[in-house]
Design a binder for these strands. Structure first.
Length: 415
RNA sequence: GGACAGGUGGGUGAGCUGGCUGAAACCACAUCCCUGCUAAGGAUGCGUACUGGCAACGGUACCGAGGGUUCGAAUCCCUCCCUGUCCGCCA
């Protein structure tokens, strides 16, 4: 959530920064107005309440002294009416304010480039040169081995389109990748956790998926629970409503989960193959840090994911997202895009974001700094999307005969 | 799912015949004192959010959540959620 105090005190600079993210300025102005009005109304309410409290305390005194309490009682009954009216005003303003505030995205970092969409993202560097094929590399769904590995039709039969079934070495390779990634992350200081795949509304509000992106989520019908779109949600919310000791920070966690997304806005995109599925596996990195630590930990997370790709021999590049392409909660994001020779292009395989204090304010994750409780910084990043890694291995390690060589680092995970 | 018992500050836990309780006590924690180390002892402080004030220090709200009764509720009433135990069911 936006820092409302910053908005009240320095509206112009907040508005200017949010322009990069294409935020409707009238909403911002309205938010500021409401928050100021709320402040006034709260003051009025609190004064009435103070009066009520003070005079109520007179009752036992009067009774002891044998005084008449009828007059006092009448006075307070009237005051009570005023309080009720004022309370409604305050409540309405609060609701209005939260509704607007919860729908305003995070402020991008100052060095985030201006831009509309992915066209304007900035490539930071390339890692590993794409392999030179002496035959025309195929896309992962066209390999000779694919029917033996992926059953798209029966995934659809079991659920619906955008579901698939892995078989034989592909099923084992998926499991090997998960184990390899978790071990790798652990060696970089990320502690492993295993978390629920269903979460409640408060959790999704905390990390910013709700209220704005309800349509992207699978919801359980008879209960207010949702399938997680990413492990970022349960893992970050581990700390929701908690005050952490400074010594506990940075907390660095890694978790493997399945992820579920409706892909509501992606009709017709990536319908072939396994690039875009309603259910996919992902190993995630999450960090909770002090503001001073967050830049360094962000770099560690980017390095972790990039090194993981390198260790798998997968060529990739690092891309700094522009303002227009930045997600709702992110102040800065670096995407890792893996080279897919069959598609002859780089495709996103990991996305690492620093949300600064945005999620921390929503989820009330704080740490003790001296006597104060300050919001932490939260960061998250994939390391990596397992399905896409599988695809990348299939395309990059394909042989002329349509078979696939398993990367060396994974071989002992598959014995 | 059924029956009963509960949900209080970082933890344990009193209060729950309504006002003196934002909350005893103990533990943990912090600072200080004392003791040549260690152990022990003593003093003080120590919930959260918003808000007024340079500060000292105040105001309001919060005792699972939301309503209600009352001049006044942690304490009474209602609804919901959660936890524990037993039974049922189940990997």
């Amino acid at each position: 959530m936006l820092d409302l105090k910053a908005l009240q005190n320095d509206f112009e600079s907040v508005a200017a920064k949010l322009r990069k993210k294409k935020v409707d300025e009238t909403q911002l102005a309205k938010l500021k107005e409401i928050s100021l009005k709320l402040k006034e109304q709260r003051k009025i309410l609190e004064e009435l309440q103070a009066e009520q409290n003070a005079k109520s305390k007179l009752f036992p005194v009067y009774q002891k002294e044998g005084k008449d309490i009828a007059e006092l009682k009448k006075e307070l009954a009237e005051n009570k009416q005023k309080i009720a009216v004022e309370q409604d005003i305050v409540r309405d303003l609060e609701e209005e304010m939260y509704e607007i505030a919860l729908n305003i995205p995070n402020i991008p970092d100052d060095d985030v480039p201006e831009g509309e969409d992915e066209e304007d993202n900035v490539e930071l560097k390339k890692v590993l040169d794409p392999r030179k094929f002496d035959f025309t590399p195929k896309e992962h769904w066209d390999l000779k081995i694919t029917p033996d590995w992926i059953d798209f039709e029966r995934g659809v039969k079991l659920a619906k389109s955008r579901f698939s079934v892995l078989k034989n070495d592909a099923a084992r390779l998926e499991r090997a990748l998960i184990n390899y990634m978790l071990d790798f992350n652990r060696s970089r200081g990320f502690e492993e956790v295993s978390v629920p795949y269903l979460v409640n509304r408060d959790s999704l509000l905390g990390t910013g998926q709700l209220p704005k992106f309800e349509d992207d989520l699978f919801k359980i019908e008879e209960e207010p629970l949702y399938l997680i779109p990413t492990a970022e949600v349960p893992v970050t919310n581990l700390f929701r409503d908690e005050i952490l000791q400074k010594e506990e920070l940075p907390a660095k966690l890694t978790s493997y989960t399945a992820c579920f997304r409706k892909e509501a806005g992606s009709a017709g995109r990536d319908t072939r193959g396994m690039i875009r599925q309603h259910q996919f596996d992902k190993v995630e990195l999450v960090a909770v840090t002090t503001p001073e630590q967050s830049d360094q930990v962000f770099d560690e997370m980017v390095a972790c994911a990039s090194d993981l790709l390198t260790s798998l021999g997968l060529p990739h590049r690092l891309v700094l997202l522009c303002g227009g392409d930045l997600g709702f909660s992110a102040a800065r994001t670096i995407d890792l895009e893996v080279w897919l020779p069959g598609q002859n292009r780089y495709r996103e395989i990991s996305s690492i974001s620093n949300t600064r204090a945005f999620q921390a304010r929503r989820a009330k994750i704080r740490y003790k700094e001296g006597k104060k409780n300050l919001p932490v910084h939260t960061l998250n990043g994939s390391s990596l999307a397992v399905g896409r890694t599988l695809i990348a291995i299939m395309e990059n390690y394909q042989n002329a005969d349509g078979s696939v060589t398993i990367p060396a680092v994974l071989q002992h995970y598959m014995t």
